[in-house]
Design a protein around this nucleic acid. Structure first.
Length: 413
DNA sequence: TCTGGGGTCCTAGGACCC
DNA sequence: TCTGGGGTCCTAGGACCC
């Protein structure tokens, strides 16, 4: 059996843990730059605040209704996630942390004990971390997802549900787009083919699915039928691509400012690369103007290969700068830039270039990076280039404290 | 009527997820 | 004024090899 545990309105719930006065009130959390709504408490959902709604369009309505609005505080959410996952790990030796607020567990209990187990998981996570979760149990991951959705949408379930078999009665309750792995595009095409519910997808013609949609959807159909095709991925695989990109808080026209942004993002991306002991063979740089409005639009990206794969921030920056120069056009108001590291491989398997960077030099680089990572981990930010006034950095004026990760922010009562 | 039969690697694009 | 930031996998097509 697979259990899917999903935190309810996770970011909003994190804010509530340390501010109980928010209980019962409408709470929303905004994306980076306070751009759009990415988490809503049930009260906020009831007011009709949509997921992904631009904040500037909703602002007045939110204020009028006394909604509590927060900038995103990933330091807090990551740490709360770690606590939730640590708690869940005590309930099964096999756990897959699927996202910041979801995990699959494999349960090998007798079926008659599953319901009690689910209730206990939910109660324990709530008591130990303050985060409310729902638990859905079934024989495949796709069915566990639906089971969880059922628990979440039906108050009568008490937040847990065990679905022993994929019955017509159960699957007919869900639109086909509610099935994990079926998004908007496939939903439309399936609807056009007369498939509107999860049950109809369960009954769909196998060869038609394979021919029209491919093997990915076919696996989902099998999962709906109770044939497990998606296994529990207990160990997180190394990233095959690492992105770091941010929207600016204001327009940027000057290439020097873009250069500094690219240096910053590369520092972040390379730090992630080193944390999984990998090297990257290619680096990509992209810049964009605003998508909306009537200002002239431009976006472009350029990618380049490293002479030899590296995790050295300085080397990556040196390779990336000419790429930025190549795509930069004067006269545009840029709103976002980013970098993308690809062709990632384990650092232990580097194929050195006979005429490349001498070993002694690369050893020095390695030491420098290790020292930098250590300083940054301890909260001192060490930068490449000009770390001075950066007017374009993220806007997040409504952020709560880092209650669990910074002594200065410890809650006072 | 009929045009060989195996492969690999890389990239772009399109889906999907949170 | 103002619209996030990460990821994964699969497929088709083009280039190459013998």
């Amino acid at each position: 059996m697979f259990a899917l545990i999903d935190c309810n309105n996770f970011y909003a719930s994190c804010e509530r843990v340390f501010s109980p006065k928010l209980n019962g009130k409408a709470v929303v959390v905004l994306s980076n730059n306070d751009g759009c709504v990415i988490a809503r408490s049930n009260e906020a959902k009831a007011l009709g605040v949509e997921m992904g709604a631009p904040f500037f369009k909703e602002r007045e309505r939110l204020e009028k209704n006394g909604v509590e609005v927060f900038s995103s505080n990933y330091e807090l959410y990551s740490d709360m996630s770690r606590r939730v996952m640590g708690t869940l790990a005590l309930f099964s030796g096999e756990i897959e942390v699927y996202s910041i607020d979801e995990a699959f567990l494999r349960l090998t209990l007798a079926p008659d004990r599953l319901r009690d187990h689910a209730t206990e998981i939910r109660a324990t996570v709530k008591q130990w971390t303050g985060i409310p979760v729902c638990v859905g149990i079934a024989t495949t991951k796709v069915l566990a997802k639906l089971s969880n959705r059922f628990a979440k949408k039906n108050a009568g379930t008490g937040g847990t549900h065990f679905q022993a078999a994929p019955t017509e009665e159960f699957l007919s309750r869900f639109d086909v787009e509610d099935v994990w792995g079926v998004g908007g595009r496939w939903g439309e095409r399936l609807n056009a083919g007369g498939i509107k519910t999860a049950w109809q997808l369960h009954e769909a013609n196998q060869s038609w699915i394979r021919a029209e949609f491919g093997v990915v959807l076919l696996r989902i159909v099998y999962e709906l039928r109770g044939v497990s095709c998606l296994s529990l991925e207990e160990v997180a695989q190394d990233k095959k691509g690492i992105v770091s990109s941010r929207s600016f808080s204001r327009s940027v026209t000057d290439i020097d400012e873009l250069r500094q942004a690219v240096r910053d993002y590369l520092s972040t991306a390379a730090e992630k690369l080193r944390s999984q002991a990998s090297v990257a063979g290619r680096v990509q740089v992209h810049i964009l103007t605003a998508r909306h409005g009537d200002k002239p639009k431009y976006s472009n990206a350029a990618e380049g290969e490293l002479d030899e794969p590296t995790d050295d921030t300085a080397t990556l920056i040196r390779r990336a700068m000419p790429l930025l120069d190549a795509i930069y056009r004067e006269g545009f108001e840029y709103r976002k830039a980013g970098v993308y590291l690809t062709s990632i491989s384990p650092a232990s398997l580097i194929q050195r270039d006979l005429f490349g960077v001498p070993i002694e030099k690369s050893e020095k680089q390695k030491t420098l990076m290790a020292v930098m990572d250590q300083l940054n981990r301890n909260g001192r930010r060490v930068h490449f280039g000009d770390a001075g006034r950066k007017g374009w950095t993220m806007k997040r004026g409504r952020r709560s404290q880092s209650f669990t990760t910074d002594w200065k922010d410890l809650l006072s009562v």
